[in-house]
Amino acid sequence: MKNTCNRVWLTSVLSDSDVPNALTLCFSLRRVLTTRRLAVIVSPKVSRVSRAALSYGFDFLFILDDEGNTAGLEDEDFVKLFVLTLQGFEKCVMLSSNMLVVKNCDELLNKEENKQQTFVFPENGDSSILKIRPSLQVFNCLMKQLAKRNGTRVDAILKRWLSKQTPQHTLIDEKYNQNFDDKATFLGEEKNIAIVNLKNTTAHELAFLGKRVLHLWKCIHDESVLPILNAVAKVCTN
Rank of each mutant, 00 (worst) to 15 (best):
D75N: 14
F58S: 03
A22C: 08
G57H: 08
K148W: 06
I129M: 03
K183V: 12
V101Y: 06
N124A: 13
F139T: 03
L109G: 05
G88Q: 11
L214C: 01
E190C: 08
M94R: 10
E189G: 02
S43Q: 08
K103F: 02
I220T: 08
L209K: 11
D65C: 04
L171T: 10
F121A: 05
P134I: 03
L29G: 04
Q137P: 00
K164L: 15
L14W: 09
V42H: 00
H204P: 14
D65H: 12
I195V: 15
F180L: 06
K2P: 15
C26F: 02
T201M: 11
L158A: 05
D18G: 03
T4C: 09
E67V: 04
K111W: 12
E174G: 08
I228E: 05
L25S: 04
C26S: 04
A71V: 03
K211F: 03
N98K: 13
S135L: 05
K2D: 05
P122L: 12
I63A: 12
S12T: 13
A39K: 03
N124I: 07
V120M: 06
N98C: 07
K159L: 12
S135N: 11
D182C: 03
A53S: 15
D182H: 10
W161C: 05
E74P: 00
N177H: 11
R153Q: 11
N69I: 02
T166Y: 06
N150C: 07
L142F: 07
